[in-house]
C-alpha cells in the first residue's frame, strides 16, 4: 500500500479523532477566552497540490482579505497548521481580546496569533495524543492576504501528496469564525498512516 492510499477506515478514524480534538479546542477556548464556539464536521482528504488549491478556492470566498497564520509542528508526526480568518473576524477578535473598540494592526495580529496558538496546541496535541505520540510547536507567523491565494509558489514546489484536514469554527456571540487546515506531506503521511494502523489494530483486536 502506498502512502497516499488511505482506506475508508483510516479516514474515518482521522475524522473521529479530529472531532475529539476540535471538542478539546472549543472547550479550551471557552475556558481561556470565555467564548463559546460551535464546530463543523471536519473534512478530510488525501490530495495533491492542485486538489488543495481547488479545495481552498471552493471553501474560502475570493473577494476578501484574510489573516493567515501558519505554524509548523514536528515530531513523530509533523506538518503545518493554518488558521484563516477574514479581516472582519480578526478585527472582532482583536476587539474582543484587547477590549479596544478600534484595535490597531498590531493588536489584531497578536490576537490572531493568540487564538491560533490555542487552536493548534489543543487540536494538534489532542490528535497526536490519541495517536500515542507528542509534537513540538514552532513560532507562528501571520500575514494579511488579499483573496484566497493562500498557497505561495515556494510551497507549490514543496508539497506533492498532501493530507488536508479542514474545518470551520464559529463564535456566534463575538461574530468570529475561521477556517482550519492541517497539512501534512511526504514521510509524515506514511507515519500518520502507521499510527492510525496501530489504532485500528487496537480496535479490531
Amino acid at each position: 500500500m502506498q502512502a497516499s492510499e488511505f482506506s475508508d477506515d483510516h479516514l474515518d478514524i482521522l475524522k473521529e479523532l479530529m472531532n475529539i480534538a476540535m471538542g478539546n479546542a472549543t472547550a479550551s477556548i471557552a475556558d481561556l477566552l470565555q467564548a463559546f464556539g460551535t464546530m463543523h464536521i471536519p473534512y478530510i482528504s488525501v490530495s495533491d497540490l492542485n486538489g488543495l488549491k481547488s479545495f481552498i478556492e471552493e471553501t474560502i470566498p475570493n473577494d476578501r482579505q484574510y489573516y493567515v497564520t501558519k505554524q509548523l509542528f514536528g515530531g513523530m508526526f509533523g506538518g503545518e497548521f493554518i488558521f484563516v480568518m477574514t479581516d472582519e473576524s480578526a478585527v472582532n477578535l482583536g476587539n474582543y481580546l484587547y477590549d479596544i473598540s478600534k484595535p490597531e494592526r498590531a493588536d489584531i495580529l497578536d490576537a490572531v496569533v493568540e487564538l491560533t496558538n490555542i487552536l493548534s496546541a489543543t487540536i494538534v496535541s489532542r490528535l497526536t495524543e490519541e495517536l500515542n505520540t507528542k509534537v513540538q510547536f514552532f513560532v507562528p507567523s501571520t500575514e494579511l492576504v488579499e483573496g484566497n491565494n493562500l498557497i505561495g509558489l515556494a510551497e507549490i514546489l514543496d508539497y506533492h501528496k498532501i493530507i488536508i484536514v479542514s474545518t470551520q469554527m464559529v463564535f456566534q456571540t463575538q461574530n468570529i469564525s475561521g477556517y482550519i487546515f492541517i497539512l501534512t506531506k511526504g514521510e509524515m503521511i506514511e507515519r500518520l498512516r502507521h499510527l492510525i494502523d496501530q489504532k485500528l489494530e487496537e480496535l479490531y483486536a
Partner: peptide, 25 residues
C-alpha cells in the same frame, strides 16, 4: 457521547432530556 465538551453543549442536551453526557472517546 460527544466530542463537544463545552458546558453549554452539556446543559443543552440535559435540558433536552438526555440522561447523561460523556466526553469522547
Amino acid at each position: 457521547v460527544s466530542a463537544d465538551i463545552q458546558t453549554q453543549a452539556q446543559a443543552r442536551v440535559l435540558s433536552l432530556g438526555a440522561k447523561l453526557m460523556v466526553p469522547k472517546p
